[in-house]
Amino acid sequence: MKTGETGILTTTIDKALEWGRSNSLWPLTFGLACCAIEMMAVQGSHFDISRFGSEIFRNSPRQSDLMIVSGTVTKKMAPRLKRLYDEMPYPKYVIAMGVCVIQGGPYVKGYSVVLGVDRVVPVDVFVPGCPPTPDALTYGIMTLQKKIRGETDR
């Protein structure tokens, strides 16, 4: 800054914003099925998601910036999921939790399950497992934080 070069200041603010954003993710309370119980376990005392600044689960999509799609998305639920996603303010992120959300899971042969939530909303992080353990979901959130901060995860 002493040299008066422009550009350094803006990148710093961006970095600060990204850092702040990544450490205060407010997820939407959006439990669909089995994985929602593991999402509750992540909130609970043993795994304690608040270490990563995400403990405030908001009930309104307008106050949250992270949607953890936890559990099978059925065709009947998909339009509502889309609407909830549309109601969330920018910047917004989606974590697809569990194999049902990723590609249909055990219900892939059926008639009423959406084969992957990425057909409805864009997904940032996929967390596989049936259901993923709370550790896996925590790792997914950390991966998302890295992604927000612009770090590559190798």
Binding site: A33, G71, T74, M77
Partner: peptide, 14 residues
């Protein structure tokens, strides 16, 4: 209801 209808009974037959 039916927002989590995952057709388990049909899949059981398969």
């Amino acid at each position: 209801i039916g927002y989590l209808h995952r057709n388990a009974e049909k899949l059981c037959e398969m």
